[in-house]
């Protein structure tokens, strides 16, 4: 979405030197131009995102920042701290709560006293969006972008969606909800199936064309994944290990290794 390739992202997941963060960041930490990373600390991204908006306003740019966090993350205190500052200073920020009904194994209603996440900005207007409808999301984001960049201050958007899989590799995702629930979501709410249905209904495209798009997407991704797998991991050299702790040229004289023999001199 921000111009990064599938290859560079899969490469990062595989810890490759040509990964999007050169194999340093991994699954939780990816950065590219205009994309300020995943944050491994749940909720910490929210005030940081408000800070991006602060900079946009400060520099007189007509940009808004898109700040995404989960239903679980929405309970972190710093989310509310960010809301307050953003409203106080009229920052162009779109706070976006991806309510996928669970934070790890905790259902939203067990973590949140109010599960209408779009209302949680109190003094910030909120918008509830069907996160399983691609076109609704597009329309909402467009509206929010215009609203926030035109000096109206922040918005809180709640994207109502669902997580099919487990939270992580170690979570089968079936101990805290029923298989039926997942199945029901898949068969009635799936965003790709939903869009497909609409496109056909509106005669925008044909079944064959959609099949071809699907096939092309699969082979594109397969190709990029195969290329990513071919990429080399970073050479395990002290130079690769210690580079980029500081901005190049501004490093201290040396960093200590595990033993003094392994100290690295820039």
């Amino acid at each position: 979405m921000r111009g990064a390739t599938v290859k560079s992202i899969v490469g990062e997941l595989l810890g490759r030197r040509e990964g999007i963060a050169y194999g340093k960041g991994g699954s939780m930490h990816m950065f590219t131009k205009g994309f300020y990373g995943g944050n491994g600390i749940v909720g910490a991204q929210v005030p940081v995102g408000a800070g991006l908006a602060f900079a946009h306003q400060y520099l007189g740019k007509k940009n808004a920042s898109v700040v995404l966090y989960g239903d679980g993350a929405s309970n972190q205190g710093q989310v509310f701290e960010a809301f307050n500052m953003a409203k106080l200073w009229n920052l162009p920020v779109m706070f976006g709560c991806e309510n996928n009904k669970y934070g790890m194994g905790t259902a939203a209603n067990r973590s949140s006293a109010l599960t209408d996440y779009y209302k949680r900005g109190q003094y910030i207007p909120g918008l509830k969006v069907n996160g399983m409808d691609v076109l609704a999301v597009k329309a909402a984001v467009k509206y929010a972008r215009d609203y926030t960049t035109n000096g109206h201050g922040p918005l809180v958007l709640e994207y109502v969606t669902y997580r099919y899989g487990g939270h992580s590799m170690s979570d089968p995702g079936t101990t805290y909800r029923t298989r039926e629930e997942i199945q029901r979501m898949r068969s009635t709410q799936d965003p790709i199936a939903g869009l497909k249905h609409k496109l056909l209904e509106w005669n925008v495209t044909t079944e064959e064309e959609l099949k071809q798009i699907d096939k092309d997407a699969r082979s594109d991704v397969d190709k990029e994944v195969a290329e990513a797998e071919q990429m080399a991991p970073p050479e395990p050299t002290p130079k690769n290990l210690f580079e980029d702790i500081y901005v190049r040229g501004s490093e201290p004289q040396f960093m200590r290794g595990r033993t003094p023999d392994e100290n690295y001199y820039y």
Partner: peptide, 12 residues
């Protein structure tokens, strides 16, 4: 530990 934020790539 070495004086470095933990890198992701396994060999590092």
């Amino acid at each position: 530990g070495a004086e470095v934020p933990t890198p992701y790539a396994q060999k590092l």
